[in-house]
């Protein structure tokens, strides 16, 4: 029984990793590729590590494989965020079917400045408060 569960976990984890790399190969631009790899590969590693925890079934090793799971779960979104940000700033092309890019009208890629759309003369005026130390 436990062999069956382990085998199912290993095969499904490997299939999720294969799905991630198929998505990396087939999808059209950087952000959709990251969308494929981050989630599917994370789930694949989680399943394989659960299989390892069930195989060894000792406290220290189960804790170690859960540490790997938590580490992957914490670092994968951070790495994906940082890479997406860097890719956008470097100027990687978006897919031609992209519906919405809200950063495009507000961001100047040459000066690296982001506008909020509220920069008027009136908003630039200083409005002192009661608590200001002066």
């Amino acid at each position: 029984m436990i062999d069956f569960i382990k085998g199912t976990l290993i095969i499904s984890g490997a299939l999720f990793m294969l799905l991630a790399s198929v998505g990396l190969l087939r999808l059209p631009d950087l952000l959709t590729r990251m969308h494929a790899t981050t989630k599917a590969a994370t789930l694949g590693v989680i399943l394989v590590m659960l299989a390892a925890a069930m195989h060894f079934a000792e406290v220290g090793i189960v804790a170690r494989s859960f540490a790997i799971i938590v580490f992957i779960l914490m670092t994968a979104p951070v790495a994906a965020h940082v890479m997406g940000r860097a890719g956008y700033f470097v100027g990687s092309k978006l897919w031609s079917g992209t519906v919405k890019d809200e950063l495009r009208p507000n961001y100047d890629p040459l000066t690296h400045e982001l506008k909020s759309g509220l920069e008027t003369q009136q908003n630039a005026k200083r409005q002192p408060r009661e608590t200001d130390p002066d």
């Binding site: 790399s21 590729r33 590693v45 299989a51 390892a52 992957i72 790495a79 890479m83």
Partner: peptide, 17 residues
């Protein structure tokens, strides 16, 4: 870089197996 990251994740799975 995204492909290399997927590379390292897959290698983690391989090492686990």
């Amino acid at each position: 870089v995204v492909a290399l990251e997927l590379f390292s994740t897959t290698v983690v799975g391989l090492v686990g197996v």
